[in-house]
């Protein structure tokens, strides 16, 4: 490899060798353990973000109040640099968190003070895409359907849960997918915090031992490739879930939903 020859880094062949070594796959610091950590963190982050963003988005969409405020805040949040916020939160929060216990191998003892700021950064990043797509989904519902829902005697909560939410499901799911991709990609940054796992470990640690033939550059590339593969696999799963959850009646009229202007700001483009 020309690149390797020029800068003295191990060649891509070393990456293949890295992947071929079972020792790099198994064990508490192996690839699979990092994948599991990565998935657990992603799940926790996206669920937390969704638990906040979906209800808020539904209420904003239903009432039509606060849309300007939320749209502005969401866009501002997207511009926040993840690494800067992470370091800031570690400086501010970590000394104040006194939990020393861990939980199994995914959360080693002593990691919680760093894990919380790291995941918090990601929750903050994951909220805007879910929030904006949720309220855009609710607002794309035909006004006549909303009028009819109230007119048939549904309470406001029933209107939200029985009509607005199922009808905006494709957009809610697309927000969740964007957020998930963004979290999977940005989680690598979280490894700058000590003791925080995930595939970012391979990248950050590999970067620190760049010229090490086994744990350096090859591990870094392996980590990057794994993040990409993981992102594609998870997105495919969510896509499947979206298809299964969306009513055929919505899917058939989906062309209208997909031309929604909100999607032009699809945060996938901002991810990573």
């Amino acid at each position: 490899m020309k690149l390797a020859a020029d800068n003295g880094l191990p060649g891509l062949g070393r990456v293949v060798i890295w992947f071929n070594d079972p020792g790099n796959w198994w064990g508490s610091t192996g690839l699979l353990a990092h994948v599991r950590e990565h998935l657990v963190y992603t799940f926790v982050v996206v669920c937390t973000a969704a638990l906040i963003a979906v209800p808020v988005g539904l209420v904003i969409g239903h009432t039509g109040r606060g849309t300007t405020l939320i749209a502005g805040t969401s866009n501002a949040l997207r511009a926040v640099p993840a690494l800067g916020l992470l370091i800031f939160l570690i400086v501010v929060l970590s000394p104040r968190i006194h939990i020393r216990q861990g939980l199994g191998s995914t959360i080693p003892a002593g990691s919680v003070p760093y894990l919380i700021p790291a995941l918090l950064v990601l929750v903050i990043l994951a909220i805007p895409p879910i929030l904006t797509s949720t309220y855009a989904g609710v607002q794309s519902l035909e006004p006549a359907a909303r009028e009819a829902a109230a007119g048939t005697g549904m309470t406001p909560l029933q209107v939200i849960l029985k009509v607005e939410m199922p009808c905006s499901l494709p957009l809610i799911m697309s927000g969740l997918r964007s957020a998930t991709l963004q979290v999977i990609a940005t989680l690598t940054v979280a490894a700058y915090a000590p003791l925080v796992g995930g595939l970012g470990r391979l990248i950050v640690d590999g970067h620190q031992n760049l010229r090490d033939l086994r744990y350096g550059y090859p591990a870094m590339v392996a980590g990057g490739v794994s993040v990409a593969v993981l992102a594609l696999a998870v997105d495919a799963l969510l896509n499947l879930a979206q298809r299964l959850l969306t009513s055929p009646g919505i899917a058939l009229s989906g062309t209208r939903q997909r031309t929604n202007p909100m999607n032009s700001q699809n945060p996938v483009q901002n991810a990573g």
């Binding site: 009028e147 009819a148 007119g151 048939t152 309470t155 009509v163 009513s247 009646g249 919505i250």
Partner: peptide, 29 residues
């Protein structure tokens, strides 16, 4: 809500629920 369940309401654009079948739309009330 109680009042409206006792009054049939038909509007210009029909306002059917797009995610429900015809039968389930009619069964709403």
């Amino acid at each position: 809500a109680e009042l409206r369940r006792g009054i049939g309401y038909v509007i210009q654009q029909a306002g059917l629920f797009p995610h429900k079948t015809v039968l389930d739309n009619i069964a709403t009330v």
